[in-house]
Amino acid sequence: MNIAYWIIAGLLALFYFYAGAMKMFRSRDQLRPMMAWVDRTPLPVVRALGAVEMLGSTGLILPPLTGIAPSLAPAAAIGFVLLQIGAVAVHLAGEDRRIALNLGLIATAAVTIWLATGL
Rank of each mutant, 00 (worst) to 15 (best):
G67C: 12
D29M: 01
A107L: 14
G79L: 04
R32M: 14
A36Q: 11
T108R: 07
R98K: 11
H91E: 01
A100S: 12
P33I: 06
M1P: 12
A109V: 01
W37F: 10
A116W: 07
L65K: 11
L62W: 09
P42M: 04
L31W: 08
A109D: 05
A107I: 11
L49N: 06
R47H: 04
P44Q: 00
L60M: 03
I61P: 12
P64L: 00
P44M: 05
A100I: 15
I3N: 08
G79K: 05
S71Y: 14
Y18T: 13
A76V: 12
G79I: 06
G56W: 06
E53M: 12
L115F: 06
D29V: 10
G104C: 13
I7S: 04
V52G: 00
E95S: 12
G94K: 00
L60I: 06
A89Q: 02
G67Q: 14
F17C: 00
T58Q: 12
M22K: 15
G59E: 02
M24V: 13
T41Y: 00
R98C: 02
V45M: 06
L101F: 10
N2T: 14
A51Q: 06
A93E: 01
R47T: 03
V111H: 05
L12P: 09
G59Q: 07
L65M: 01
A69S: 05
L11Q: 05
M54C: 13
F80D: 09
L72V: 13
R32W: 11
I3Y: 08
F25K: 10
A77M: 02
L101W: 03
R98D: 12
R97H: 15
A19Q: 05
T117G: 06
N102K: 07
K23D: 04
A89Y: 05
V46I: 10
R32Q: 14
L12A: 07
W114I: 09
P33T: 05
L82D: 08
M22A: 10
V45T: 09
V52K: 00
L55P: 08
A89P: 01
A36V: 14
P74V: 03
A87W: 04
H91W: 03
R28T: 15
T117N: 15
A87S: 09
L11C: 08
W114A: 14
P64C: 02
V90E: 02
I7T: 03
A116Y: 15
Y18P: 00
P63V: 05
R98V: 08
T41M: 09
Q84V: 03
P64T: 01
M22P: 11
T112K: 12
P63A: 05
F25R: 13
I113P: 13
T112G: 11
E53W: 14
V38H: 07
L43M: 05
L49K: 04
A87L: 04
G94I: 09
D39H: 02
H91C: 03
M1D: 13
V38I: 15
Y16K: 05
L55C: 08
P70D: 03
P33N: 11
G67D: 10
A75M: 12
M22R: 08
R26Y: 13
A21F: 08
A19R: 00
L55D: 04
E95W: 10
L92C: 04
M24C: 06
Q30R: 10
